[in-house]
């Protein structure tokens, strides 16, 4: 079993590495980059919210902060467009992390349900700030120095950087799951007060998890900003982003390591495809996406990963019981 799962990881990695070489259509490459970015976001969202049960519906705070810091840093440092801009990506992640400290201090004061709503409210503060402040360029947004790469090749560097961020996110999430820190997050999810009474410094642990997830999501925002060239407040601070990331985790399996990866890959590519296909049909895309979303949540409430595991388990025990029945039949 263990061996098999290692093989799956390896296969996934190989596919991910060779994909852009095989897939030459730039439109599809673009979809692939977004899929990687969203999967990385979902993975690190889950690393905090999934493990601790503190559902964050304001993850775009990190994404947008990352995107804006990428652009602002590039402009202030007078950088010219090119691969050097990628150095700003981790730096933007750090900025998102730093912004996350005061935000987390306020938001994490409240418990569960109120926390969810607070994250939404704080998200709107950020969206409004980005729209209204001068240094963010207001509704006109910001531009990053032009990147002079050929269209046929343009997305390839983004692809590999996004893949690197995704791998980092997965390793981080797996590492957390195995660490004492991860154990403490899980304990907080199950019974926060009890965890406190067993010496878990819940406030510090929650804030650390929150900020760590912000680092990765901030980097993704920075990559997005670079790839787009131009960012607007309503697209980097997008309520749909908040929900989509959460949905990916619930779709794949909330609190599991693989769930967000599956959720991210399936949903983001599907969403991109639907957007491309139905963009002329206007809001038909909203209806389809919403309906799909409802079906999944209602019929697989614990996510695909858990659903498949249960189904596999039932199947195995059925096989076993039919085998025992068969041997029993022979014996008699």
């Amino acid at each position: 079993m263990k061996k098999w799962s290692n093989l799956w990881w390896l296969a996934g990695l190989v596919v991910a590495l060779v994909l852009p070489l095989v897939m030459t259509n730039p439109a599809y490459r673009g979809i692939a980059v977004y899929t990687l970015l969203f999967t990385a976001c979902a993975t690190s969202w889950n690393m905090f919210s999934g493990y601790s049960g503190y559902v964050n519906l304001g993850a775009a705070v990190f994404y947008g902060t990352g995107a804006y810091s990428e652009d602002l840093l590039a402009n202030h440092l007078n950088m010219s467009g090119g691969a050097a801009l990628f150095w700003l990506v981790p730096l933007s992640g750090v900025v998102a992390m730093l912004i996350g400290i005061p935000v987390g201090l306020v938001a994490l004061r409240v418990r569960r349900h109120t926390y969810v709503v607070i994250t939404i409210a704080i998200f709107f503060v950020f969206q409004l700030a980005a729209t209204n402040f001068g240094f963010t360029g207001g509704t006109a947004g910001l531009t990053i120095p032009f990147i002079p790469w050929m269209a046929s090749y343009f997305d390839v560097p983004f692809y590999y950087v996004a893949l690197a961020v995704l791998i980092f996110a997965i390793l981080l999430s797996a590492g957390v799951r195995r660490s004492r820190f991860g154990l403490q997050l899980l304990a907080i999810r199950d019974d926060e007060d009890r965890a406190l009474g067993l010496g878990v410094q819940v406030a510090a642990v929650k804030l650390t998890g929150y900020v760590m997830s912000g680092f990765v999501i901030g980097m993704c925002g920075a990559i997005y900003a670079m790839k787009q060239g131009q960012i607007y407040p309503q697209f980097v601070f997008d309520p749909l982003f908040d929900i989509t990331v959460a949905l990916m985790c619930f779709f794949g399996g909330f609190g599991t390591l693989v769930g967000p990866i599956i959720g991210g890959v399936v949903l983001e590519s599907a969403q991109q495809y639907l957007t491309v296909t139905y963009s002329s049909g206007g809001s038909l895309y909203l209806i389809i996406f919403g309906a799909l979303f409802l079906l999944v949540i209602l019929f697989m409430p614990r996510g695909i990963v858990v659903y498949v595991k249960d189904w596999w388990g039932r199947r195995q025990s059925r096989i076993e019981s039919s085998q025992t029945a068969a041997t029993a039949g022979v014996a008699s």
Partner: peptide
């Protein structure tokens, strides 16, 4: 996770109604 799920479900409903 009922409360968190309710946000997602009602959000999906909102998308369908909006569309």
């Amino acid at each position: 996770e009922k409360t968190a799920m309710s946000i997602l479900v009602t959000y999906a409903i909102a998308l369908v109604i909006e569309g």
